[in-house]
């Protein structure tokens, strides 16, 4: 039952986004988050939606898969929208009514704010998904993080150890899930009951699963450390990589395009004139 869980949602493929340097993708993600939060008006959002559609098309990931990733967050989005609608004050009252003891007062500003927030969250999920989690394998990701943070190594931050720990953790996720399954089966065969009773008794029932799992993880860690030592691992010093990361023209071009979008979103005057949607700024 636990086997279906996949950590990260890497979607193997060979699109341009798949082939970009992971460092660039990490930078691009940060840049996109900044752009999304800086977008001031509807024109800015329009531009971002266009960019997102473009990125999705570029990644060649089925739209269905992307919609699926949004699904678990729908509740958060709706809650944010509701909060914004009801708690934003404003001049242009749309609805002002007292229903029983609740005083409902909707304003145009509130609704607009709600829509903006919803767009913001959805764009964030889709963009980071398409650029990072769907198109970058975990190993590339840790590699990228290690290289990006390597300057910190000069001031004594153990960047290599950190990246190594992350990739080992990723490596052992499926192994530990398999083990959890086995322990659950073993406990069930001894009469353990995981599916009845209230929340507290169910949580209690998990203790006989978690403790063996913890103990065996320590044993694994011990054996793994031994095996790594026997394979000549001695930290990041003097280590090389089979696959070197090299920046290519397409990586630089991709980052430049995103920087252009940042400029557009950052200068509030430009979008209106550039995209000829002057009225948008006025109406909202």
């Amino acid at each position: 039952m636990l086997k279906d869980i996949t950590l990260g949602q890497y979607f193997p493929g060979n699109s341009l986004l798949h082939r970009l340097d992971p460092r660039i993708k990490l930078l691009a993600t940060v840049l996109l988050i900044v752009i999304i939060f800086l977008a001031k008006n509807m024109a800015g959002y329009g531009v971002m939606i266009l960019l997102t559609v473009f990125l999705v098309a570029l990644s060649r990931i089925p739209v269905k898969t992307i919609l699926k990733s949004i699904k678990p967050l729908i509740f958060v989005v709706l809650l944010t929208v509701a909060m914004n609608i009801f708690f934003t004050g404003g001049e242009n009252v749309v609805l002002d009514q007292k229903i029983w003891i609740i005083h409902l007062r909707l304003t145009a500003e509130g609704i607009l704010n709600g829509v903006k927030m919803a767009l913001r969250i959805l764009l964030l999920i889709v963009d980071t998904g398409v650029i990072l989690t769907y198109t970058t394998s975990p190993i590339d990701l840790t590699d990228g993080i290690e290289r990006l943070l390597s300057p910190l190594g000069k001031i004594g931050v153990p960047v290599h150890s950190f990246a190594m720990m992350m990739s080992l953790a990723l490596r052992f996720v499926p192994t530990l899930i398999e083990e959890t399954d086995k322990i659950i089966a073993a406990q069930k065969s001894r009469g353990a009951d995981f599916s009845s009773g209230n929340v507290i008794s169910r949580v209690k029932a998990l203790i006989p699963v978690l403790i063996p799992l913890l103990i065996s993880s320590f044993r694994r860690a011990d054996e793994l450390a031994l095996a790594m030592e026997c394979r000549c691992y001695h930290g990041g010093k003097g280590r090389t990589k089979m696959k070197e990361l090299k920046l290519q023209a397409k990586d630089v071009a991709f980052l430049l395009v995103l920087a252009l979008f940042l400029a557009v979103a950052f200068l509030p005057g430009i979008p209106c004139s550039v995209f000829g949607i002057n009225t948008m700024n006025f109406v909202f």
Partner: peptide, 23 residues
Amino acid sequence: NQLVATVVEEDVAFGPENLGIEP
């Protein structure tokens, strides 16, 4: 408990990488 990477070929490369051999 002796495999370190999430991809087979990356795992095989682990030892030589530790030895600092040319890519």
